[in-house]
Structures are given as C-alpha cells and as structure tokens.
Design a protein around this nucleic acid. Sequence first.
DNA 1: CCAAAAGTGTTTTATGTACACCCATGA
DNA 2: TCATGGGTGTACATAAAACACTTTTGG
Lengths: 230, 230
Amino acid sequence: MTLNVVALTVDLVLLTIRREALQVLLIRRGIPPYQDRWALPGGFVLDDEDLDAAAARELREETGLDPERGHLEQLATYGGPGRDPRGRVVTVAYLALLPDLPAPVPGSDAAVAAWRPVGETGELAFDHDRILADGLERARSRLEYTPLATRFCAPEFTVADLRTVYETVWRTRLDPRNFHRKVTGADGFIEPTGGTVIRDRGRPAQLYRRGPATHLHPPLLRQSPGSPSR
Amino acid sequence: MTLNVVALTVDLVLLTIRREALQVLLIRRGIPPYQDRWALPGGFVLDDEDLDAAAARELREETGLDPERGHLEQLATYGGPGRDPRGRVVTVAYLALLPDLPAPVPGSDAAVAAWRPVGETGELAFDHDRILADGLERARSRLEYTPLATRFCAPEFTVADLRTVYETVWRTRLDPRNFHRKVTGADGFIEPTGGTVIRDRGRPAQLYRRGPATHLHPPLLRQSPGSPSR
DNA sequence: CCAAAAGTGTTTTATGTACACCCATGA
DNA sequence: TCATGGGTGTACATAAAACACTTTTGG
C-alpha cells in the first residue's frame, strides 16, 4: 500500500455581524500558492492536539476572543487530492458565530486580516469559496433550529437586536411583533435580565441574555410552511 | 514546528432496515488493537483519492452495493490524539442509508462482517460508539427534512413500507392515514408507478418510486411542535 | 360475511400571519 | 403633542391530529 499520510489543517469560517451586514474574517496571503489572494484563516493541527482544540486555538489567535463567548462547531472536511498544489493537505473546516468585536479585531500577527461582507469576498484561495458557501448555509440553518443567533449578540441584547440578526443572516424582513412573541415564547431561548435600554427614540426595550436551550421548539422557519404551495 | 502529518482513514456507518429493525454493519477485528471487538467498517484513504471516493469505494467493498442505490454523505471527522493507540489516525466518518440487501450481504473479504441492530452493538472499538451515535442522530434528523427515507426502500415501495421506515428509525408509531396524506402531498417526495401489490391481506397498495425532491417542504416532524410544552 | 389493510373525508385543535392598538420615551 | 420604536390583543387563514368511514382484497 502507498503511504497514506497527509498534512492536516483546520480552516475557520468566522462570521459576525458588523454594520448591519454578515461579515467573514479573511486573511490576505503573503506567500504562494495563491499569493495576494484572500483566504479563510487557519493553520496546522499540532501533534497531540484535538481537532476542536486546534480550531479554538486558531480562533483565539485570529480574533483574541475567548472561544467561550462565541459558538464554534465542526463544519465539514475537505480533502480532494488537488485542493492544494503543494501536496496532500486535508482540512477540517469549522464554523464560528461571533459577537461584533469592539476591540483590536483583525491582524493579531503579521498577516493582513479583515472583515468582509460575505457577498463581497471575490474569489478566495484554494477551495475556500466552497467552504464559505457551506458555512453560510449551515449558519442559516442553525438559526432555524437552534438558539445560536444569540451568539452574534452582546451578552445583553434586545429583541430587536436579535431580530436584526435573523434579518441580516436570512436577508429577509420579519414582522417585529410576531417575532417578539415567538422568541419570548420559545422555552429557554432568552431570559430577561430586568434592565432596559433606549437605543434611539421610542419606548425602552427589555434586555435579555441567552437561555439554556440548545434546540428550538418550535423552530423559527425561514420560509413559512404554507407559502411555497401558494 | 513539529511534524503534523497524520494517517487518514474513512469509517462508515452503514444503516439498513432488516427484520423490522434498524441495523448497522459491523466488522469483527482480527488483529490488535481491539482484537475480537466489533468496529465500523473503514480503511485508509489512498493517495490521490478524494474523501467521497474513498467512502464510496469502501461501501462497494463491504457490501457489493452500487453507491448509487443508497445514500452516502459525510458525517464528521474524528481526530483526537488518543483515539488510536498506534498513533495519530484521523478518520472522516460517512453515513449511508441503504436498502435491505437481498444478496451476499456481509463478508466480501476475509473479515467477519454482520448486520446488528443498533441497540445491540455492545462496546465498539476505538471511538466508534460515539461515531455510531452521531450517525444515528443524523439519520433521524435526515428523515425529518429530506426524502432520504426512500433510500431504505426497494426501488418500488408502498406508503406502508415507507411508514415502517419512519417508525423503525424514530421508534414511534405514526397514524397510517395522516402519514399517507403527508407523503403523497409533499411535492416531489414520491411518485406513483401505476402498479399495485398485495402484501398480506387487504386492499392492494399503490406502488411508488422516489421523486426528484432533495428537501421536504413542509418537513415531517418527529415530535409535534406543540407537544413538548404541554 | 368477516378480517385486514389501503385510502378518503370531516371535525377539532393548534399554530402562523396580518394588523389594529396601546405604551413609553425623546424632541 | 408628535414621531418612533416596544410590546399586546385579536381575527383570520392554514395546517396538523384524531378518527369515522369507504374500498378492496383473502379467507
């Protein structure tokens, strides 16, 4: 049998909401292959390092964020023999949903890093266009069946903040009144903190933190079940 | 940096329905580690072989089945440093939903292979208990949102056959009348062939083949949305 | 004729949607 | 007091659950 060892990396699809847009963190490559092209952040898995740990380490290196503050999950693994011209490199992609980082967001080390709206990424290096597309679809789906939308928010947030997350990720408008009822009624989704804020004008909004639920019952469906047949 | 090359394998969670039970294909290991323990089938990814191709090849080797007849999808990747005592072995797990194979099902090569009900597998080798559990959960979820339940059936099947799939995988009872309406009403799920069969007694049942849909709208939910809160 | 399984129709109940309406604040 | 956004109540449409009932076969 031929040698079947491969180089192993993790690549990260880091998503956040900045300036009313869904954005992804990209790194400008300084060396070939794909020099000067944008790519997803990532790096090699170390010896004796678990895959999840490698992804968490990369997340911390790239953003400075404590992995606990966001959500990090394995997305899929990409291992086509031609995906890296240097040789056989298999990458385990991870998806992260992160709050808008107020601090020194990108460029912790030398490489150039930047948040870019997901629709304006150009052509990425390697097969990263495909990985990003898979990550976006996963993120949109996660918002339907899980309470992970709160991971895009600050620790305390209003129902309107949460609705903005849904509207941004799904690229739709949602009825504020029905949305309010749904999320406050879904068991364990969000919990009131007792505080209020006034964002612009208008009546003060209640503040919430994320609740203990891991799944949404019932789900918030992107497309109303009856509408496709009409 | 230390050497970060790893050995890469694919492992398969092959599911089928035999004798009214959800069963998984297992291989009895003939060599250490975990000698004489049951394990998921799998093997090394070859040089210049895509991951999906490696999984399809293993599926064909283990079952003799044309991968086109079933459904094969990537499940997740497991790469904890201690998962294989021989060294760093990362495995990409795949999930397959297969029809009941009438032919020489297991044991295409020397190793002992057998279908076993998913609840009676004992303790599997490596981290295969975890992989199997993840595969089962994925399969149960797939039946809600996709028409993949038909992959457990023969090319032509009755609505009752399809209902048995759901009841077996979900371990529930479903109302035959409402189930009939749902699946015949879901767009692109199943298509009548024109033929009929009499299985035991009773009125002949229409025969169907699987339709072109890739997703179910609306989904068939395991748990009625309102029931958990009551 | 009876039992059994397939399939249809109807009632009841729950859920989603649309929207009128009130509340609490800044200007 | 007006504009603005937060939040509640309610009528209507739609879909699911429960189940009575008809159809079509074998024995």
